[in-house]
């Protein structure tokens, strides 16, 4: 039972961390919106899915790559990857802002209760996934290979591949940038102020609508970046991939303490690792079961999640 785990430990760890970093970025999308609105943006999973298509549109339609083309090299490689990342983030960011405008802002302005926006967000998530289903005729869409998956080094039997390395480093960098943005920038302070006390923030002259839209945008950009890394590593997407990935990332956000940015980081990475370890030890069929047992245990001993104190203090 443990032979695979011991035998392939470092390989599994690296795969788990790479998967975990993708979860971290999607979890940011959930956690940012929750931090400000105290509401789960259920459309975030579909924002992710739209982000994956952004990366494919860039490589396939903008640069003309197809399934049989050779991977890019040198400066061209950097350019294509950068444009893909940009396209993913732009697709997802725009989708997120649209979700805010359609499903949140108008209802908020009318003073509806929180459940109404919850449902309208779920509605948006169905619209987003159905539109993509129709656009792609329900078929899986393969992504052309842009980045050659070179094995850089082997350490303790674990292969460090170029795409895994790029995912871990770039996703880490994007995470740090966003975290710093919320911590240090003027807009970031406004976001945190609204998160702590909406009314007081309004009285201090903060434009509530602008803060909320920015929050959705930032969450969408993070989620879109996750879409890009997902495409680079797995080279495959479909109209319904959002559900599984979104659920996992949402779980990660809850484990880390929803509303807390660092919590999303630790939640995402530990979830990625838990998934691959559980699959290796117990068999892949036990993956989801194990994750939810971990979730229940965490919530049992720490109901607010691993990093969740700040949230319960600001709002009882």
């Amino acid at each position: 039972m443990f032979t695979v785990f011991i035998d392939q430990f470092w390989q599994l760890t690296i795969s788990g961390i790479a998967l975990g970093f993708i979860y971290v970025l999607i979890a940011l999308g959930y956690t940012m919106v929750y931090g400000v609105l105290r509401m789960i943006n259920f459309a975030n999973s579909e924002i992710f899915m739209w982000g994956t298509f952004g990366a494919i549109v860039a490589s396939r339609d903008l640069f003309g790559y197809n399934q049989t083309s050779e991977p890019a090299h040198g400066a061209k490689l950097a350019l294509v990857l950068f444009i893909q990342l940009f396209a993913s983030m732009a697709f997802a960011g725009l989708t997120a802002v649209t979700v805010e405008f359609v499903a949140y802002r108008r209802l908020r302005a009318k003073g509806t209760n929180r459940l109404a926006t919850l449902i309208s967000a779920i509605g948006m998530s169905m619209v987003l996934s159905e539109v993509m289903r129709l656009l792609t005729a329900s078929r899986p869409v393969g992504s052309p290979r842009i980045l050659e998956k070179v094995i850089l080094v082997e350490v303790w039997g674990a292969q460090i591949r170029l795409d895994t390395l790029i995912t871990i480093m770039a996703a880490g960098a994007i995470f740090i940038i966003l975290e710093r943005f919320v911590k240090l920038s003027r807009m970031g302070k406004a976001i945190r102020a609204v998160s702590m006390n909406e009314d007081a923030a309004k009285l201090m002259g903060i434009n509530l609508n602008r803060v909320i839209t920015t929050t959705f945008l930032v969450g969408g950009l993070a989620t879109g970046a996750a879409g890009f890394f997902y495409i680079t590593v797995y080279e495959y997407t479909k109209f319904n991939i959002g559900f599984t990935m979104g659920l996992a990332a949402f779980t990660a956000a809850v484990i880390g303490g929803i509303g807390n940015i660092r919590g999303a980081f630790f939640g995402g990475v530990s979830l990625g690792l838990a998934e691959v370890y559980a699959s290796a030890i117990l068999g892949t069929q036990w993956k989801s079961v194990t994750i939810f047992i971990v979730l229940v245990l965490v919530l049992l001993f720490k109901p607010s999640g691993l990093f969740g104190e700040a949230v319960t203090q600001t709002r009882a």
């Binding site: 695979v4 599994l12 795969s15 991939i241 599984t244 993956k287």
Partner: peptide, 13 residues
């Protein structure tokens, strides 16, 4: 599960 996209545990096995 048929929703899997990350097969690294299977490949490790």
């Amino acid at each position: 599960p048929n929703t899997t996209t990350d097969f690294s545990p299977t490949i490790a096995k």
